[in-house]
Design a protein around this nucleic acid. Structure first.
Lengths: 352, 352
DNA sequence: GAGATCAGTGTAAGCGCTTACACGGCATCG
DNA sequence: CGATGCCGTGTAAGCGCTTACACTGATCTC
């Protein structure tokens, strides 16, 4: 019974439709939407009710085209799969929202090429600024960014020496601290499971941190058994089996992040190894999962939420013209839970 | 030493710049980008090298404005926080990518109002179609959608009777099946921890499924202790404590999803209850976490990836003009792992 | 060999919006 | 009371792109 045109392919309403219905010019409608206080209330009310009546929503593309600003910030993270970036991004988005900005997220699958494409896409979509993870990036990409002069903030790392501002933490120092603790517990042969280090500066810095700690304690470089594998629980489990499959297996396995560590933990259980009695395992990130596994994971806590929030603030400031962004360093700390124990007697050595 | 203008605020290159540099018209450049085979190779090469040289990326807004198509599909999910929607969305995105489409994601925080806003935003950004979760939606929103005549596909539910096409599974039947199993194991007092049921048809359907199973077995309605709380591990734990805090606590607690169930599991352990010996716990979704907790969670497996993939296909077909989308039903199945056991003797009753 | 056809390219009209500028009306001021 | 300024609004010029249409030669057809 509703009065409805049978096949009305009613085109989406435009500013002009609203203007006509409200009996004003398009300029006035535009002002009602963007700077309401420059329009007298009576007019504004008329316009707004026309907007509602028509179900009008401004065309974003047209708006961006005319205004040369989108109030949109793009972020490209390596992956959405595991929760590593979720919390930080969530906080980032929340803070952006507070300032009337929108977030556009893309993921690069840890691929440099995909990332370059995503950067182009986000720029094409008019992102006013970009949040990227890590510094590793081809010269071509950097040139592109510079050519378009898009403000870029690099997150999840802190390196004040790079030309681009960054917000994050010192991956190397954080992992070194963990390695110090591992060594202090008596471990001498250390397995390391990391994401592939080339094109991932966070991964390589973390491994480097372990190397430094070992060197500082006079441990030979070959006391470290390094396996690289993409972040996933499955991969972590597989890598753990490989790391342990040798005549003289490590007594502690340090993982480049919690996802790998949880995989290692699971593999250890399946192999009948007790953690931390037979082997110690450490993670990095302190994602929610770290507390849920049994035993709870010893890991490095990263202030993801703070990082996201501050990243948003830096970017917003920059866009408001408050000068360039300054690299900012956040602190991490060790979460010494239950997967790191003192090194077991070196049974095999004794048995020989 | 690099020859670089000192303060060159070089504006971003446009189609026209490319055309000028390549010595052709803007139409030709546009064609090179969109329909390369309609341009002779020699011209095309010239244009493409101009594109590279300038670091040109087409302005998406302008393109959408002129072409009236964005090759973008919008999706609004209730939350990105927990992994419930991640896997399905990932598959959705992958499949869309195969067809040259881009995904734009927004999250509504389970709020109807926020969702309405996000719908407007995505439409404004020119989404060619929308993927929404669940059918519950205000009339105003439905009107808006109809006014703009955006194709909408509803996911995570299956209900062929609704006007809008859906792809998903029968939440009620799936949960009923689980409840049947719980009852078959001898449980008579059943706790239920669900997300708030109003404005969440998946949650309410699942609860309804339990009711049906109980009724079918002659269990009185008050044998079910229902607690509603937003999805989170913490909330699941808190709700579990409440559900169990009564003179005659349930012997099984069925949770509306795995996140709540994991929380319940943790609370149970903290309370010194053994699962499933003292109390059984079930989940829903079969997210990765379900297998990681100890003991592994008995839950309902949902084919998230299939759902995402098929959703993308349906949408792409529709956009290619292959007729309207047909509601599609996917199957779920029980994952009877280790948190569901036979009902313990009803100690309190005996003790009385 | 004249006319039809077609491939490759250019011309130009918008797409829906913002905003500089112009304009009229009204309060303010010396 | 005329000059001044401001406020609320309208006019119209683009923003960067796509695409219908027009045009030009070359190729074909009979």
């Amino acid at each position: 019974m509703t009065a409805k045109a049978p096949q009305a392919p009613r085109p989406v309403p435009t500013l002009e439709d609203v203007a006509r219905l409200a009996g004003v010019s398009t300029a006035t409608v535009s002002r009602c939407l963007n700077t309401p206080d420059r329009v007298v209330k009576s007019t504004r009310d008329r316009v707004m009710s026309a907007v509602d009546q028509l179900g009008y929503a401004p065309n974003f593309g047209a708006r961006a085209l005319a205004a040369k600003r989108t109030n949109t910030i793009g972020a490209i993270i390596p992956t959405m799969e595991n929760a590593i970036f979720a919390r930080g991004l969530q906080a980032f988005q929340e803070e952006l929202g507070l300032h009337g900005m929108t977030l556009l997220v893309a993921s690069s699958s840890y691929s440099e090429d995909v990332e370059r494409e995503q950067i182009r896409t986000l720029c094409a979509r008019g992102a006013d600024a970009l949040l990227l993870i890590g510094h590793h990036r081809s010269q071509g990409t950097l040139d592109f960014l510079e050519a378009r002069s898009v403000p870029v903030l690099v997150a999840w790392v802190y390196d004040p020496d790079k030309p681009q501002p960054s917000i994050g933490f010192d991956n190397r120092a954080a992992m070194r601290e963990m390695a110090e603790l591992v060594i202090a517990k008596g471990h001498r042969r250390i397995g390391v499971i990391s994401a592939p280090c080339d094109s991932n500066d966070r991964a390589s810095e973390r491994v480097q941190g372990i190397r430094e700690a070992m060197a500082a304690h006079g441990l030979p470089a070959d006391a470290m058994a390094l396996h690289e594998t993409p972040y996933s629980i499955e991969n972590g489990a597989a890598a753990f089996r490989q790391v342990m499959d040798c005549p003289d297996p490590p007594t502690a396995v340090m993982c480049g992040n919690d996802v790998l560590a949880v995989g290692a933990l699971r593999a250890a259980r399946q192999m009948g190894l007790s953690v931390p009695d037979d082997v110690s395992i450490t993670g990095f990130d302190d994602i929610e999962l770290a507390q849920l596994v049994d035993p709870p994971l010893t890991t490095v806590h990263v202030p993801h939420r703070d990082m996201g929030r501050m990243a948003a603030r830096l970017l917003v400031q920059q866009l408001n013209g408050d000068g360039p962004m300054a690299s900012t360093r956040l602190d991490t700390y060790l979460c010494d839970r239950e997967t790191l124990g003192v090194a077991p007697r070196q049974r095999r050595h004794i048995a020989r």
